[in-house]
Structures are given as C-alpha cells and as structure tokens.
Nucleic acid binder design. Structure first.
Lengths: 153, 153
DNA sequence: ATGAATTACGTTGCACGCAATCTAATTGTT
DNA sequence: AACAATTAGATTGCGTGCAACGTAATTCAT
C-alpha cells in the first residue's frame, strides 16, 4: 500500500491538504466571528494589533504576509467599523500607523473565547497541535524561501 | 518555556500556520504554472479531471470543497483556454459534465514535472511529508465536521 | 545639495471563495 | 397526473489576495 503513489493525484498532494484545511478553518471561524462583525483575515489583523498597537501597514503586512493591495481596503473596513484609526507617521510621512480605538481594544475581551472554541473543533491533544503548528510553520518558511529564490522581483 | 502561551497570539495559532502555508504554496506554484497558463485553483481542477474525466460540476465541487459560485466562472475560463468542454448531461439536464479536450489531456504531460519541483521546495524526506499530509487531512476533516454541526445551512 | 534610487502606501484589474438568490429539471407525494 | 420539495447550475455582491502601476516622501550617490 506504499507505492501506488501518483504524483499527479489530488489526494496525495500536501498542497491540497493545506489548501482545503485553510478553507475548513475559515468555515469554522465564520460563525464564531459573525457576532463580532469580523471576517477571518480581519480577525487575524486584530490579533496582530492586540499584540502590538500602532503598527504601520508595512509591519502588519510583514506579520501576516499580505501586501498593501490587500491591507489598505481591509484596514479601511476596520476603520469604518470603528475598531482602528489611521494616521500618518510624523517621523515618516510615507507610513500610515494603525492604532486601536477604545472599541477595538474592547473587542479583544469579546473575542477571548474563540481560541477555546477552536481547540474543541480541532479535537486533538495540545502537544499534537503544537507539534503540527511547528511542522507547518517550518514548511511555510521553506516554501517562502523557495518562492523568493525563484522570483524576488 | 512551555507556558508563556497566549491563546490570542498570532504566532501560536495553528490556523495562522495553515493560512500562511496555503499562501506560500500558491506563491511557489505561480511561476511553475505560469507557462501552462493556469492559476493554482485551476491546476487543482485539472488534477481532478486528469484523474477522472467527464465529471459534473457538483462532483468536482465535492472533490475540491468548492461550490458553483466559484466553479462556474473558473470552468468557463478553462473552457476559454480550450482545456475543457461543457455539455449538459443527457441523463439529467440539470447537470453539466466537464470533459477534457485533447489539449486539456495533453497538458497533463506538460505538468508532470511540477510535483517534483514542489518536492524540492518542500525540502523534506518523503515519509515526513506523507505523515504531515495525513495529519492535516485529519485536521481538515475534524474542522469540516464541526462546521457542518454548527451550521449545516 | 541635487538628481537617482528606494520605500510606503494607494489604486486598478483580475481571480478566487462563499452567501444568497434565481431558474430549470428531477424526484417525491398523494 | 398534479403539485410540492429537492437538486444542479448560474448569477450577484462582497471581501480577500496579488500583480502592476502611480504618487509622494525619504534616502543614497556623487
């Protein structure tokens, strides 16, 4: 049962496992985030800001692996929701600093039970989850290194 | 070093590892697929069809975890590229069967080296990759089960 | 110090991904 | 047979992602 492996078979692709798992995560998050009025990428952005406030668009982009083409409209939506404020960095007028509003900060408390709900959905012992997360992070870094080597632009 | 774990910290989230790994995959695939004129989701669709031809939109959707809102326009693009043909199922006029054209079938040969390139990009021994793929597939299935239990529509 | 790169962000265009809704075809019920 | 419920696709609208390009601010080189 080990060698009927077809490199062009969907089910045998690591990439598809990751692709479909990512979609599955957003499906699980959707009903949990709906009460907060957030989409999943918006939630990730809020996680970054709850960790460290007043970051530039660039810094947030590096953290999430997103560029301004994605972040600019996303941050404008968060601003419209009253969760963040945007202001030019006086030290460098090119940068836009994103700061949490009181409402944005308060949302952290409302979101605190979400990781627990996810833990249940994952349904696996913590050590396994930690190990899996680490393995996937290493994989991601290897892929990104390859992508940069191929076409750094 | 084991218990400074913050459940609201981005780096500690399994979901973010998966999210960013999925993006990393598409970045690696992009230059490999560009010569074929395919996007990554289009490539996944072709993998499905290379495995089994003449599938309905519904069947492809179940395989990839996508709905008609995503697949209909994607398949129309593949049709415009001359890779697939769309025809109503005579047995059930509701269904649309997707069949490979000669060109679509021929593309399989042109794509055969892509998995090898990915293997290099992943940069890890095969048994590890197999195990990781399996772990992630199990995770995905658990998440999808939770999502369905929460809101089956 | 001044013109040339570089950088940060914004905008546009295209391709997903999904909810919601619509139509047409099939199935189930009585 | 007639009508209701279900099913398969298509369409619309919105929110990502990302490439390509544009602008303004900063830095670098000479």
């Amino acid at each position: 049962m080990a060698d009927d492996h077809d490199v062009q078979k969907l089910g045998d692709q690591l990439c598809f496992a990751v692709y479909s798992a990512a979609h599955a995560f957003t499906r699980v998050y959707k009903p949990l985030l709906a009460p907060l009025g957030l989409t999943y990428p918006q939630y990730l952005t809020m996680l970054v800001l709850w960790e460290r406030d007043d970051l530039s668009v660039k810094a947030i982009g590096e953290r999430l692996g997103l560029d301004s083409g994605t972040l600019t409209p996303l941050l404008k939506r968060l601003e419209k929701l009253g969760l963040v404020a945007r202001r030019r960095d006086p030290q460098d007028e090119r940068s836009v600093l994103i700061g949490l509003t009181a409402e944005g900060l308060a949302l952290k408390a409302k979101a605190k039970d979400i990781p627990l709900a996810l833990g249940c959905a994952i349904g696996r012992p913590w050590p396994d989850v930690i190990r899996l997360r680490q393995d996937i992070a290493v994989l991601r870094d290897a892929l990104n290194a390859t992508a940069e080597a191929a076409g750094p632009t």
